[in-house]
């Protein structure tokens, strides 16, 4: 039953995602891509639970995943903000 419930969430989110972006001016293509990329670092949440477990193997891989996903999240948001701040000045 859990799988069905998760599938519901998936389908509805996919539709929201499709509807979310209609017209994007060309200058915003790269920042939007970069901002969405930062969101895809959400796998950090899954990594956190694994990294904190007392099983050695999952703690090792989990910590690695936390490290990688944090780079993605922090770097992604900072670089998007830098791109967008440059548009303002023009």
């Amino acid at each position: 039953m859990t799988a069905i419930y998760l599938l519901f969430i998936l389908i509805l989110s996919v539709f929201v995602g499709f509807e979310l972006i209609r017209k994007v001016p060309a200058t915003l293509h790269t920042p939007l891509m970069s901002g969405a990329n930062a969101i895809s670092g959400i796998s950090l949440l899954g990594a956190l639970a694994l990294a904190g477990s007392n099983n050695d193997l999952s703690a090792l891989f989990g910590s690695l995943a936390v490290f990688l996903a944090t780079i993605n999240v922090v770097g992604g948001y900072v670089v998007t903000d830098r791109m967008l701040s440059m548009f303002k000045k023009k």
Partner: peptide
């Protein structure tokens, strides 16, 4: 995004699925 979404299914984490699917779908449109 889709990879994060699939990982969300493996870990039964709602937000991973929602955020992953959002990125996956809006990424295709973009």
């Amino acid at each position: 995004g889709l990879a994060a979404c699939a990982a969300g299914f493996a870990l039964e984490n709602n937000l991973l699925i929602v955020a992953g699917a959002l990125v996956g779908a809006s990424g295709i449109i973009l």
